[in-house]
């Protein structure tokens, strides 16, 4: 598989504070990666750094053969980074359908028809505004919206956070389908480590802004004690 993402020596944070130090990351096209670690170790910051929304102090990011280190955020999205933010960031003055059409970048496999087939719930709600949705629907829309940009790499930031178990199951099924289909690469940040491990091939564990463990997801899923030591919430 050709290399899709290579990040070297990433040191980043916000303003004067440094959250991440000397992170290296690479990902092949279609590959899936779980980004694990306790609260506040810099997982979200790493995704924001890839999107150009945090302050990168050192290091470089090459995506799909193009250096994107200095690229403004919207150009990174055009290059194929599909961002599903942790806060979901619905647009209160856009309808569900507008959420999808306003970011649509044709020329890939994803369009309104395919999205509605995958998330029939969104089609039912297509005239509702972004702030009139339940938590689960918002998450579906956040994922669907990123898919409409026809990404090469989907960045899922805590997609299961704050959702009822039954919704998590439903959503996991859909996310599992699209991740395993391998149409694009995925990085998943998730507090529920097991969910993320079941979904992905590779895993990186962060602690205090540094990479402390790299392995395959399968390995870590079997090695209960290591998993507990690295990511358990005390």
């Amino acid at each position: 598989m050709p290399e899709l993402l290579r990040a070297d020596g990433i040191t980043a944070g916000y303003g004067d504070s440094i959250i991440l130090e000397d992170i290296a990351l690479n990902l092949a096209a279609g590959e899936s990666l779980a980004l694990l670690g306790r609260n506040g170790v810099g997982k979200t910051t790493l995704l924001l750094t890839l999107m150009g929304l945090a302050r990168l102090r050192q290091g470089r990011i090459v995506f799909n053969g193009e250096e994107i280190t200095q690229l403004p955020t919207h150009r990174r999205a055009h290059a194929g980074l599909g961002w599903v933010p942790q806060e979901r960031f619905m647009f209160p003055s856009l309808t569900v359908e507008e959420h999808l059409s306003v970011v649509a970048r044709p020329g890939g496999p994803w369009n309104l028809g395919r999205i509605y087939k995958m998330f029939p719930r969104l089609e039912e709600r297509r005239r509702n505004l972004g702030n009139q949705l339940s938590g689960g629907e918002q998450q579906m829309l956040a994922i669907a919206r990123a898919l409409m940009t026809n990404p090469r790499l989907l960045l899922l930031d805590e997609p299961m956070e704050g959702l009822a178990p039954i919704i998590v199951q439903e959503l996991m099924k859909v996310i599992g389908q699209i991740v395993r289909a391998g149409e694009f690469a995925v990085i998943v940040v998730e507090q529920h480590a097991r969910l993320a491990l079941e979904l992905t091939q590779q895993t990186i564990v962060l602690d205090r802004g540094r990479v402390v463990h790299r392995c395959t997801s399968e390995e870590l899923l079997r090695d209960r004690s290591t998993l507990d030591r690295l990511v358990s919430v005390a």
């Binding site: 999107m51 929304l53 403004p72 955020t73 919207h74 999205a77 055009h78 961002w83 933010p85 960031f89 647009f91 306003v102 970011v103 970048r105 919206r145 990123a146 940009t149």
Partner: peptide
């Protein structure tokens, strides 16, 4: 932020 992150 979300708009820019989605390519607008």
């Amino acid at each position: 932020q979300a708009s820019a992150g989605l390519g607008i």
